[in-house]
C-alpha cells in the first residue's frame, strides 16, 4: 500500500526533527541552569547534603519536588514551611533527632543517627532545594 511507504519519510524526518529539538532544548536548559541566578552556587556542604539525602534513601518515603514515594510529606519546601531562616534549621534538626516518635497509629520515621556535620549538610541541601525556581509549585505550603 502506498500510504505506508510514503509516510516512511515523513516519519524519519519528523523523528530526526524531534531529536534535534530535544538536543537543542537540552543545551538551552543546561545553559540556563548554569547561570548564577539559577542557583549554581553549590557549596561543598550542599553537595555533601545531597549525598546524605541519597545515602539514607529519603526518597523511599518522602517526595522531593514531587518525585519519590507519597508516604511522607513533601520536603522540597520543608525549609520554608518550618520557618525558613528564622527556625527551619532548628526545627529540622530537632525533628530528625527526636525520631521515631513511637506515637501509636502514626507513620514512623526511622532514626538515622546523623552526625552534626551531616545534619548541617542535609539542612543546607534542603535550603538550597527550597530556593529552586519551581514555577510556584507546590500550590500550597502544605506540599
Amino acid at each position: 500500500m502506498k500510504i505506508f511507504t510514503e509516510p516512511k519519510y515523513i516519519y524519519y524526518s519528523s523523528l530526526i526533527l524531534f531529536i534535534c529539538i530535544l538536543l537543542g532544548l537540552t543545551i538551552h536548559t543546561i545553559v540556563v541552569l548554569h547561570q548564577p541566578e539559577h542557583l549554581n552556587n553549590l557549596t561543598p556542604q550542599i553537595i555533601q547534603g545531597k549525598l546524605v539525602w541519597e545515602e539514607n534513601n529519603c526518597i523511599g518515603c518522602h517526595t522531593l519536588l514531587g518525585e519519590g514515594a507519597y508516604f511522607a510529606p513533601e520536603l522540597g519546601n520543608v525549609y520554608k514551611r518550618r520557618g525558613g531562616d528564622n527556625g527551619g534549621v532548628y526545627f529540622i534538626k530537632a525533628w530528625l533527632k527526636s525520631m521515631p516518635t513511637n506515637i501509636p497509629g502514626r507513620r514512623q520515621m526511622p532514626q538515622f543517627n546523623l552526625t552534626e556535620d551531616e545534619l548541617n549538610a542535609l539542612i543546607a541541601f534542603l535550603k538550597w532545594t527550597s530556593e529552586i525556581n519551581t514555577s510556584s509549585w507546590p500550590p500550597s505550603e502544605k506540599g
Binding site: F4, F18, L25, T134
Partner: peptide
C-alpha cells in the same frame, strides 16, 4: 510500523511532562 512511528515521534518530546515543576525553564 504505524504503532512504532507514533510511539517514537510522540515520546521523544513527551519527556517534557516530567520537567514541569523541578526547576526547568517554563517552556517545558
Amino acid at each position: 510500523y504505524v504503532m512504532v512511528a507514533v510511539t517514537l515521534t510522540t515520546s521523544i518530546l513527551g519527556i517534557g511532562h516530567h520537567y514541569y515543576w523541578i526547576g526547568m525553564p517554563e517552556y517545558w
